[in-house]
Nucleic acid binder design. Structure first.
Lengths: 211, 211
DNA sequence: CGGACCATACCCACCAGTTGGTATGGAGTC
DNA sequence: GACTCCATACCAACTGGTGGGTATGGTCCG
């Protein structure tokens, strides 16, 4: 259906989506101009309106593209092959910390940025962002649920809520990083998140219990 | 200098600032139109441009206004009169949870929203947002530092980093609330935050310490 | 009167979306 | 194989509504 990439240069639609990821993460959705996206993708507006009906469809397509791209990115990371679910969960946090490199628009979250500016005005985009966040949280929740079964079976918190909490910390860490102009604060936030997970899921939990 | 409010109706400048708080929190800074702000404030553009040189100055003034308004709001809250710093800290989290009422633009954070869309394009607004967040975090850090001295004197984390972490959780909780369309997720995030603080600062810590 | 305050009418730059094309390549037909 | 037909992909120039900002004049108050 869609033209395949030849010798490493992706097709125009993919380049437009990649460009949209960068521009929207840098400027936000309302301030992101279609011409900026086109310029970054190396195509003209005519090409853009051939592939997308408008700016809104671009945003939704970008959110879906973001979901599949990050999904593949995380599922292919090294920590995924660890046997212990708690190792995978802590590995996830460490991995997220390790990718806080480069400029802010390169490691911050597209849908977290977009949902802030569209939740009250554009339900379609909000839905797309919600799908993306929920899907990613559900992946994290799998490891949380397994780790909970092993290390904190009687805990009062649910795996889903803890997985969503990790996402809240990460999203909030991005906001602080943007305010501060660098990823340092975000790293410290992930350190606190890791400490919380270790406190909730103690490995030598049986030794310590003494009723 | 500025005209005082008469019989409960604030002056135009204040009404414009209040209107800006709502419009920017609902639509975001770039999508917030000056005319929207004027309409909500019940004044015309002529009045607006008498009080502000332009949209950017409005944003900066709104951030400063937000700082002083929230500063007064929290310093006047009931939990502030508790004697124990840990009680004040947990009271802060409970209080933040209790104000998650009404529509989203009424309880979400102005500067957290604005900084996302301006950090890369408008340094002046970014600075204003950073000042606001940092000032609020510094207030929280006072109680954290006192509580740390009492209940976790040898802890490896600093009071400042934990205070910033609380802000990250709150900001991230707002993003999830916007994505989900309601404050439920945010409440659960604050429950996790409270649990973390209780784990880091155990009240019966002296009993347990035995060097 | 003079200045603070505010309203009306207007200007104009910017940008989403449109128009009207061209180039390429594949399917079908003889 | 050559030729038509057409869909896909792309481009450059234009348009029109929108919204930030201005020009001007009026009103109230000290």
């Amino acid at each position: 259906m869609r033209r395949e990439m030849t010798e490493g240069r992706p097709d125009s639609r993919t380049r437009l989506l990649e460009a949209a990821l960068h521009v929207i993460r840098a400027r936000g959705y309302p301030a992101a101009r279609i011409e900026d996206v086109c310029e970054r993708a190396g195509v003209t507006k005519g090409s853009f309106f051939h592939h997308f009906t408008g700016k809104e469809e671009l945003a939704i397509a970008a959110a879906d593209y973001w979901s599949s791209k990050t999904g593949a990115f995380f599922s292919g990371a090294g920590y995924r092959s660890l046997a212990d679910p708690l190792d995978r969960l802590l590995g996830y946090v460490d991995f997220r910390k390790s990718i806080l490199r480069g400029a802010l628009p390169e490691f911050t979250c597209l849908v977290g940025t977009m949902v802030q500016e569209t939740y009250d005005t554009n339900p379609a985009i909000r839905d797309a962002c919600e799908r993306s966040i929920t899907a990613h949280a559900a992946e994290v929740a799998k490891d949380v649920a397994e780790a909970r079964r092993l290390y904190a079976p009687g805990a009062s918190w649910s795996a889903e809520s803890l997985a969503l909490y990790t996402q809240a910390v990460i999203q909030g860490a991005f906001i602080l990083a943007k305010a501060r102009g660098g990823p340092r604060v975000a790293e410290e936030c992930l350190d606190h998140l890791r400490r919380y997970l270790e406190l909730l899921l103690p490995r030598e939990q049986k030794r310590r219990r003494r009723p």
